[in-house]
């Protein structure tokens, strides 16, 4: 591993544009949930998850959070991604790959 000092230095540099999550208003946060049960994982959900994590960093998006969950109950449509925007209906995307994940982010930003 890089030393802790290295990672912390990079983290500090990141914070200038990431914004401290502690201060974010959780109620206004957009929440992206990736289904990562056995079915999702084998269909490529981990790649989708990592693509979203990277893109949120690269685009310096604040107020957007990615987490995973288990099987979302429609295994044939995996990887499945849900987008929770406060006070709006949940939007569910199916058969998501890396390219589609980036499109989902585009829609959120639009």
């Amino acid at each position: 591993m890089k030393s802790i000092a290295d990672i912390m230095a990079i983290r500090d540099a990141m914070q200038s544009h990431v914004g401290l999550r502690d201060n974010a208003d959780a109620e206004k946060e957009i929440h992206i949930v990736v289904g990562m049960g056995t079915c999702g994982l084998n269909a490529g959900a981990r790649t989708v998850f990592n693509t979203l994590v990277d893109a949120i960093e690269e685009r310096k998006l604040t107020g957007v959070r990615v987490t995973r969950t288990g099987c979302l109950g429609s295994c044939e449509n995996e990887p499945v991604v849900e987008v929770h925007v406060p006070e709006k209906e949940v939007v569910t995307y199916k058969n998501v790959d890396a390219a589609k994940a980036l499109e989902i982010l585009n829609n959120i930003q639009a």
């Binding site: 990672i7 990079i10 990431v18 999550r21 502690d22 960093e57």
Partner: peptide, 10 residues
């Protein structure tokens, strides 16, 4: 804040 995404990528 480990979820600061740069740390995860590293």
């Amino acid at each position: 804040e480990l979820q600061s995404r740069g740390v995860l990528r590293l």
